[in-house]
């Protein structure tokens, strides 16, 4: 069940990090439309379709890849707000971060993260990780349609 039309939201502050993610998407043959936010507040504006975003420029994503260390409102807080909002909480949030601190892992799952992935070092490992995320979250599992 391949669905190339579902949108993915990537929340990643670093351009270098995003470049690597975009490249990994390409290598993983992931053709879905990808939107990117560079900080927590922008991600929340996108999800709530407010500020510079409206229903047109910010479609509801089918999956969110969330970095934890973001300028301003950081990923941990964004995650909490998403999971506290009935309209958003069914969107799978995959935390994708360099941190493997036990505290971060525990707190993310407690806040309702759908999975927690540590960014592997080296682009080979990273492409592999993105491929597996795609295989699981976009192909294997069934995600609810927009409520």
């Amino acid at each position: 069940m391949i669905n190339d039309t579902r949108t993915i939201l990537v929340v990643e502050d670093s351009d270098d990090g995003y470049l690597a993610t975009a490249r990994a998407f390409k290598k993983a043959c992931l053709k879905n439309p990808v939107y990117r936010c560079t900080n927590g507040d922008q991600a929340l504006d996108f999800l709530f379709q407010r500020g510079e975003y409206d229903g047109q420029s910010a479609p509801r994503p089918s999956m969110i890849l969330l970095d934890l260390n973001l300028p301003g409102t950081d990923g941990r807080e964004v995650l909490q707000i998403i999971k506290a909002e009935p309209k958003l909480l069914s969107i799978p949030v995959i935390v994708l971060t360099t941190s493997d601190a036990e505290d971060d892992i525990n707190r993310c799952y407690e806040a309702g993260a759908n999975s927690y992935v540590k960014k592997p070092v080296g682009i080979g490992g990273f492409v592999e990780a993105i491929t597996r995320i795609k295989n699981f979250w976009l192909e294997l599992v069934i995600i609810p349609k927009e409520p």
Partner: peptide
């Protein structure tokens, strides 16, 4: 923690 990010970048660009 903050050193890891740029290092990852260096490694990635070398790979690219």
């Amino acid at each position: 923690h903050d050193l890891k990010e740029p290092l990852r970048g260096i490694n990635n660009y070398a790979s690219f």
